[in-house]
């Protein structure tokens, strides 16, 4: 179902945790709230579920304004970071719990619980207690417990954190397949950019209680609209420049257009910078101060005389011609640079 958050504010004492957050999620969409720890992701999710009452703004699910509705009347599925499985109930009883409190008959309850467990591949574990399941299995029980109620929205708070790296990737893929199969609107929370880029239809990047940018993974990666977003997703060179009359100079001879005037930051991904042998004259370039092998690529740091070196990622073949101490020229296609306002001036 469609989810709409309008101008949500939340204070914890003097701590302004959510600052006029807006978020709009389409039916069946899988979006991720991505941001550093402490930026308010969990709080925003809890406002959606009704565990936290916002101090301002509104939350709508489908056609209904649910801002002041108690959590037990929202029919929102919530998967907690710790899974919060009931330790004194078996897997089937955990999954059937939401049906039991709705006074669904025992036979029907068990049947629906088993069907949902089958969906997550745990049908043979129905009689176990949660303590006797692995982390990945516990997570799937928590998922089944939420899904069995056919909620309007599924919310997952750092659901993959407790899993080891390999299992995490497998579960991320599995989750995406599952929610797409069920067709449920899903909002995940994470501080892990790889996870966000892997599973989401769209990503909402959060910073200090605000949603800085919302877009598809490639949009937010390629066209970040704040320096924070650029820096948080992958690595980026943040170059301070002055823009005048609708254009600016990244380096000698490299001009790109800009919609802002004044002090700006040019975001350049390391893989978009090309290295070449320096030609006589004064093009953009510098001396290599550091290099290291990163899988199939080589990462260089090039001292261009600015306070921070420019980072460049080159394919290993071709990149291995250069070594520390060499002078190199830098090139950049204007398509690959992106101009943003410095953080303090961002709206």
């Amino acid at each position: 179902m469609h989810v709409q958050i309008d101008g949500i504010d939340k204070w914890f004492g003097a701590n302004h945790v959510l600052r006029r957050c807006d978020l709009s999620v389409e039916q069946g969409e899988l979006i991720t709230l991505l941001g550093p720890s402490g930026c308010g992701k969990t709080t925003l999710l809890r406002c959606l579920a009704g565990f936290e009452l916002p101090d301002g703004g509104s939350v709508s699910i489908g056609e209904d304004n649910v801002t002041h509705l108690a959590p037990n009347h929202r029919n929102v599925g919530f998967v907690f970071q710790s899974y919060a499985l009931f330790p004194h109930l078996t897997v089937v009883e955990n999954v059937g719990y939401g049906l039991a409190v709705r006074r669904v008959s025992k036979a029907k309850r068990v049947r629906r619980a088993m069907e949902t467990l089958e969906l997550v591949g745990l049908q043979q574990f129905g009689d176990r207690y949660p303590a006797r399941l692995s982390g990945g299995q516990q997570q799937r029980v928590a998922l089944a417990r939420a899904l069995v109620l056919q909620p309007k929205v599924l919310l997952l708070d750092e659901a993959f954190n407790a899993l080891d790296a390999k299992l995490r990737v497998a579960m991320q893929v599995e989750l995406r397949k599952l929610v797409k199969k069920v067709g449920i609107t899903t909002i995940c929370v994470t501080h892990d950019q790889t996870e966000a880029l892997t599973i989401s239809d769209r990503i909402a990047v959060m910073f200090e209680g605000r949603i800085d940018q919302m877009g598809t993974p490639s949009e937010v990666y390629e066209r970040p609209c704040t320096a924070f977003v650029a820096d948080f997703l992958g690595t980026a060179n943040l170059l301070r420049r002055r823009s005048e009359g609708g254009s600016l100079e990244v380096g000698p001879g490299i001009r790109i257009s800009s919609t802002f005037d004044g002090g700006v930051i040019v975001v350049v991904r390391p893989e978009d910078v090309m290295l070449s042998q320096p030609i006589e004259g004064d093009g953009w370039g510098g001396r290599i101060t550091f290099s290291r092998l990163v899988g199939p690529s080589i990462e260089f740091e090039i001292d261009t005389g600015e306070d921070r070196p420019v980072r460049v990622l080159s394919p290993r073949r071709g990149g291995d011609r250069y070594s520390v101490g060499d002078r190199v020229a830098l090139a950049l296609s204007s398509r690959d640079a992106c101009v943003v306002l410095p953080h303090q001036e961002a709206s």
């Binding site: 009347h73 919530f78 907690f80 710790s82 009931f86 409190v101 939420a146 109620l149």
Partner: peptide, 27 residues
Amino acid sequence: LDPTLDEASVGLGATKSQTFLRITMPQ
């Protein structure tokens, strides 16, 4: 006792008293 168990229960549609009787008390 983990207080998020109570939240999980309410999130699944239980009332306060159902949560007390079915989740808190047994533990």
